[in-house]
Design a protein around this nucleic acid. Structure first.
Lengths: 333, 333
DNA sequence: CTGAAAGCGCTAACAT
DNA sequence: ATGTTAGCGCTTTCAG
């Protein structure tokens, strides 16, 4: 049914080696032969099979970006950065997402073991050092984005510092009763942001009130969703003494929270986290994370290390930047 | 360096066929042998290579979802639906995105020609009948989501009807001067929605004013972005006689438009398009499209047709549903 | 510049 | 239940 290299070779009156050379941009084919082969290949719609090619050449020209869940705006922007870089090359970008139900380490080992790709970009996949070490032992080219492992290239953002910055903004303006909308307990970034939130308050001589750290009950996307923020804000507002200001672990939750406030006709200063594109238009103050940039840099690094002999490890740490917009307006300087 | 089936077979004192059987869930292996093989495989981190396996077995257990651009909320929700179904099986979902710069037909032919996947889901890839026919000739299992081709399974949404519904809502309430925020000229869905917008007005005996159909200058994502809506709304408001109501071709543009209105302290009724999750919390009235559902159904259909012998074509047409929220409040019934 | 031939690492008959 | 063996469709030396 479908044509193989043999069919093309026969029809073109050349050997399969020549056909192969044509499709591998080898210069060692005469223009005439190349043209003839290409003509026939086009006519019958021939393309070298990926699997046979991968097996024989031990490389695939595909890059796999591994993400935990597709439906997250953060990943989306990172992927965009990655995509931009990859699409300038003749690599193919495939996206693989790890299933939340199954052990992630197991999935990664299976994926890398299959050797689908020449290189892997892990976006927001959070493993501990031991687990990463086990993955690294599979000996594939990889770079981490939004997580760190000492033995490999990574681009990371300091979650604790980000939350500290946001909280500090309120503390410096005299607020002492600040709420936090967090996400699922198992979310590592959310955990670190909570930590930063509490830490800086203590440094300011305050004793943070546990009841001011809340999450909604919507587990979807680890709680990084609109509804969660909505529910959490209602909880906060139902408190005997509601917070004077609120810090969120994501913009998307902040949007839900804003909606809850509106319902109750209350307006409390709030800071989100991520700076997704929308936030500018919502007027949401937020902690900006360099998502696009990390994607771009990560992809570039991976690609480079595939062609050149890898040099030293690249391990970048970013700190989110506070972006002030209207949800923090009207606070006395 | 990396282990092959031969290494495992040798270490386990069995033949390669047995090792292969263990990894292919064949029942024809004794429990003891299986355990021994698995133990050794685990110890050295062996996984059968995807390429060798794909070549030998002529199937890959991967499904590829093809999308035009990752950064679109519409696709995201469709992908979510797809993901949900695939993750219940032992198929792997890979996502491939076609580059905007290169001819899409060419890319699809290359992709399918490589035979990476057992089946393909095309999400919002818009080709004409001839081009689809050419793709179909490659003889791969495929289903279209958000586009139609007579020769294959598809799940489509009627764009014209959707825009008609939204526009009709305003017309029925006596509005005669309605604006539309559209997207890039080359966007097929946007074109159809425009058509519906104009068509129904004529049916109501109106002569639509061309200057009321605008787009911003931001081409990113074919104009389906916040900024585009923002710019477009400013254009509309700068008109000698601004519209009394506005229909958008996406929620994300509507959000930009809302922001522009706010800046000018003006509030015009507006209806978005898509019903992305956010919209509920923004209070945005919109045309709901069954994105998640289409993803789910599409994936299910594809999977089924991979195991069973395909029956007749499944060709579904949906019509978006009008969801009323606060951006259309206060309009006289 | 081109061809012949030896794998790449696995699956799937076919034997046993 | 297990082993033997012939490919799968390519790439890649090695000759010429």
């Amino acid at each position: 049914m479908s044509h193989t290299i043999y069919d093309i070779a026969r029809k073109a009156g050349v050997s399969i080696a020549t056909v192969s050379r044509v499709f591998n941009e080898s210069s060692k084919v005469s223009a005439a032969t190349r043209k003839k082969v290409l003509h026939i290949a086009n006519k019958v719609g021939y393309q070298p099979q990926g699997y046979a090619r991968g097996l024989a050449s031990r490389q695939s020209n595909v890059i796999i970006a591994v993400v935990p869940l597709l439906s997250n705006y953060f990943f989306l922007q990172v992927l965009n950065g990655i995509q931009g870089v990859i699409s300038e090359t003749d690599f193919e970008l495939h996206i693989y997402n790890v299933k939340p139900e199954e052990n992630p380490l197991k999935q990664l080992k299976r994926l890398l073991g299959r050797r689908w790709a020449d290189g892997y970009l892990f976006v927001s996949v959070h493993l501990d050092e031991d687990d990463w070490a086990e993955v690294a032992r599979l000996n594939q080219r990889m770079v981490l984005i939004d997580d760190a492992y000492s033995g490999c290239d990574y681009f990371q953002i300091n979650n604790k510092k980000g939350a500290r910055k946001a909280t500090k903004f309120f503390l410096d303006r005299g607020f002492e009763h600040i709420g936090m909308i967090t996400a699922a307990k198992r979310s590592i970034p959310a955990g670190k942001r909570c930590k930063g939130f509490l830490e800086i308050q203590r440094e300011y001589g305050l004793t943070p009130d546990d009841s001011l750290v809340v999450r909604g009950s919507t587990a979807y996307r680890d709680g990084f969703n609109e509804r969660n923020g909505y529910e959490a804000m209602h909880q906060l507002l139902a408190l005997d003494s509601p917070p004077e200001a609120v810090v969120c672990v994501s913009d998307i939750q902040a949007i839900g929270a804003l909606s809850a406030m509106k319902e109750q006709g209350i307006r409390i200063p709030i800071i989100g986290y991520d700076d997704i594109q929308l936030s500018e238009y919502i007027g949401l103050s937020t902690m900006r994370q360099p998502m696009y940039k990390m994607g771009r840099e990560g992809a570039r690094l991976l690609l480079d290390s595939l062609s050149e002999r890898p040099s030293e490890l690249v391990q970048e740490n970013y700190t989110p930047e506070l972006i002030l917009r209207s949800t923090t307006n009207g606070i006395e300087q």
